[in-house]
Amino acid sequence: MTDFLLYLTNGLVMGIIYALFALGVALIVGIMNVVNFAHGELYVLAGYFSALFASALGMHPALAMIMATLCVFVVGLIVERTLIRPTYGNEMYSLIVTFILSIVLQNGYLLIFGPYPRKPPNLVTGATNVFSLFMYGNQRLLGFALALVMIVCFFALIRYTWFGRVVRSVSIDRDMASLMGVNPQRVNLLAFGLGCALAGAAGVILTPIFPVTPTIGVGVSLTAFVVVVLGGMGSFAGCVVGGILLGVMENLGAAYISSAYKQLFGFIILISALFLRPAGLFGRKRA
């Protein structure tokens, strides 16, 4: 029973972080109809940045985390401006470009950082006795809390700001939004940057626990796609539910069924969900 609760807690913690980076994918798909295959590589980049800032530049780990996320936001803006913008209206090319980008980044990391895992120092140490049932790492608990706060901030942003209003109107009707006098290029730029920053935030939160290597981004991207598809394919709230669901299923599945086939379940969900709702992740009918 205690074991079960531990797996469940693990699933919940991972699920919230899945939800955090999946929200980035959902935002970019929703606004731009672009799937960013390099999403996971931006997560990894944030991990490297935070390790670099904290160890090499001697920044406080918390500051390093914030700086790393901001850097990834800027990288996202640059990527959108230079690589994504020319592909507007051509889904095929945006797919191809982000796929190539993911491979370039992986191999770039390999060249610069080597194949070895990197991590920044932990923010906190030790463990807490959860519900006086089992000991749970403080770093993980902190990560959970941080991810939760980020998600709440994201929802507040969507709910209460100019940007959020635009996002919501675009997800209802793209053409109507452009009639509202919104500059679509600026919205796309911001959405892409913000989407990447969400991957970055997840990266800096998780890297102290799971050090980054050049290629782990692939798994992150694929997980994000599964979560977005799983989460009812409509809302950002669905993303959170989907993330937690996948986190819990993976951890229970790995513990009780088979750890080798852990990822397989996700892909089967991905394909069946897409098959049942081919109109797309957002269920929006396209003419």
């Binding site: 109809n33 086939y261 098959f275 081919p278």
Partner: peptide
């Protein structure tokens, strides 16, 4: 399987298919 999909959704499905085989 992909016949009712286009663009990014088809690509995601084929990606999933490919990874399933690899696993």
């Amino acid at each position: 399987l992909c016949i009712r999909m286009g663009g990014i959704y088809l690509s995601l499905t084929t990606l999933g298919f490919s990874e399933i085989l690899r696993i």
